[in-house]
Write a protein that binds this DNA or RNA. Structure first.
Lengths: 104, 104
DNA sequence: ACAATGCATAAGGTTATGCTTATATGTGTG
DNA sequence: CACACATATAAGCATAACCTTATGCATTGT
């Protein structure tokens, strides 16, 4: 109940959302993420700490590199929360259903 | 791409999320929402303006009352965004599938 | 051992955010 | 027409958020 708010807040910053989406595409060390955006390395690290605190990403350290990757269960609370509202957009059900069949 | 960020930001505040969830349960005028939370009426109005700006709620004026209700299409961008990541939490699929069958 | 690299944390400044009280606007009511 | 009521907006304040530069701490390479 209060956890979704934290997730929303974590993804509410454009830079942080972009970083998250990049990580979601593929795991990457801080160095690479820093090169990707126009903010300093400490800023990236701070965003990563926020994402980690929100349970959205994980770290894997290898030598002096810290690889950040998507935490698979991270978005689950959001999905659960969202499913509460599915009754309100029936036009969406069809597409979601199709997507699920694809996965099966 | 930048629109989700706005939605996330709108729901990132605990008070605002609570107001949104209340509205989602049922349409209500500002007066009633104000009674429900321990913040002033202007604060509620400001949160409502933010939710409206994010496309999450609608207003229906009746006399001097302003009824706020869920905008059915409001969460769609979020659902679309989230569906991108479904591949990453397969354990969730089953429950979602069950939910969809229920709706059918 | 020393220098360089990758990352995290500290400190500080600027802007954004969320709240309050005060006030304006519009709508019913006596 | 005056007055109460419902809501929105304005102004101001305290705190949080996000960024920067500076620095600390490991780890790797020479």
């Amino acid at each position: 109940m209060q956890r979704e708010s934290a997730i929303f807040r974590a993804l509410g910053d454009p830079s942080r959302l972009a970083i998250f989406e990049s990580i979601a595409r593929r795991e990457a060390p801080v160095k690479e993420l820093t090169a990707q955006f126009r903010i300093s390395q400490p800023a990236v690290s701070q965003h990563l700490a926020a994402l980690r605190k929100a349970g959205l990403v994980t770290v894997r350290r290898d030598g002096r590199l810290a690889y950040y990757g998507l935490k698979s269960s991270g978005l689950k609370p959001l999905a659960d929360w969202l499913s509460h509202f599915q009754a309100f957009w029936p036009e969406r059900i069809g597409r979601l259903n199709a997507l699920l069949k694809e996965v099966d």
